[in-house]
């Protein structure tokens, strides 16, 4: 588990410190407060700066060009770039990404891990096959993402795990499901023909996504960007119950971003439903503080309860 985060000069962060993290972390903040950047920092940190992960992140931001070494400038805080034309340096905990060589023809970069081992960054096609230690669900869910999650699970014991989750959270009569290129169909006990997944209720596609991700993330990390999109409060509650239960069961550390008050309320509702959940939960709000610096305000289970009781908007 990542115990804390100390990020310098990465994307929109000048310097952000989150002194303590828990198992299940919900992060909120305005648009452009750096929520997605935070998830990206965790992806980089957990993969120890793997080339493919970094290239993939730049690709998702539309900043990747094959063979163009300058693309890595996109990782650094804008202000650092404008102030300092010589050497760039960013850090995520003990991991460093910095200028390796700079001359008239070339600006190359390297990753230095916690043990001082250096690796050059190459703008190659490794971004198509990132070797993540974290499972990342972006807010735009599509069949491509669904298939990527299905692939490592199908025909393995994890498929049974996913079925267990879905039977518990959505439909006890679920016997099997099948993900084809364009649709998901299910077989229910007592039914002769397959049914479309949607018949199982509201938000079931998102729940399947999360169930697959949890199965993929056993012993590792799960990152979910904007969990609330299009979901009703009641579905969010079911999702959180799923997330808390299996994060603890399968030793997964979870980071979720949101800007929905409903997502926060349902998070709190589920977190306070038992002691273990309560102790594993943390809420973090990212913002620019009164002093103009990046700030993370951390709320543990008790503080979150007290603040929500006040009926003051917390997001």
């Amino acid at each position: 588990m990542i115990e804390k985060l100390d990020i310098s000069q990465f994307l929109s962060f000048h310097h952000l410190v989150i002194p303590k993290l828990n198992r299940i972390n919900l992060i909120s903040g305005r648009n452009n407060s750096g929520k997605t950047a935070l998830l990206e920092a965790i992806r980089i940190l957990s993969s120890e700066g793997e080339n493919g992960v970094i290239n993939n992140i730049l690709k998702n931001r539309g900043l990747f060009y094959n063979n163009l070494y300058d693309i890595y400038e996109g990782l650094f805080n804008r202000k650092m770039i404008s102030n300092n034309s010589e050497n760039f340096h960013l850090s995520i905990n003990d991991l460093v990404i910095r200028t390796k060589e700079r001359n008239t023809f070339n600006h190359t970069f390297e990753v230095v891990n916690a043990y001082g081992v250096k690796k050059d960054l190459r703008p190659d096609n490794s971004g198509d096959f990132p070797r993540d230690q974290a499972v990342f669900i972006p807010f735009q869910i599509n069949f491509q993402v669904l298939n990527q999650l299905w692939e490592p699970v199908v025909l393995t014991p994890k498929e049974d795990d996913v079925l267990d989750i879905l039977r518990e959270s959505i439909e006890p009569m679920l016997m099997r499901f099948d993900i084809s290129e364009k649709s998901v169909r299910v077989r229910l006990k007592g039914e002769e023909s397959p049914l479309p997944l949607q018949t199982l209720g509201d938000g079931v596609q998102r729940m399947l996504m999360v169930a697959l991700s949890l199965a993929n993330a056993q012993g590792r990390y799960l990152l979910i960007d904007e969990i609330e999109l299009g979901l009703h409060y009641s579905v969010l509650e079911k999702l959180w119950k799923m997330i808390f239960t299996y994060a603890l069961k399968w030793d997964i550390q979870i980071f979720v971003t949101t800007h929905s008050q409903d997502a926060i309320l349902s998070f709190h509702q589920v977190a306070s439903s038992n002691d273990t959940f309560h102790q594993s939960a943390e809420f973090i709000r990212l913002q620019i503080g009164r002093n103009g610096e990046n700030e993370a305000i951390v709320y543990d289970g008790n503080r979150l309860e007290e603040t929500l009781d006040l009926e003051l908007e917390i997001r």
Partner: peptide, 21 residues
């Protein structure tokens, strides 16, 4: 208007307000 009953709720309310730039 935010109503807070008791000094500890007032303290919490003020802390939260100060943490919202």
């Amino acid at each position: 208007v935010l109503k807070a009953e008791g000094i500890s709720k007032i303290e919490l309310a003020i802390q939260e307000a100060l943490r919202k730039p």
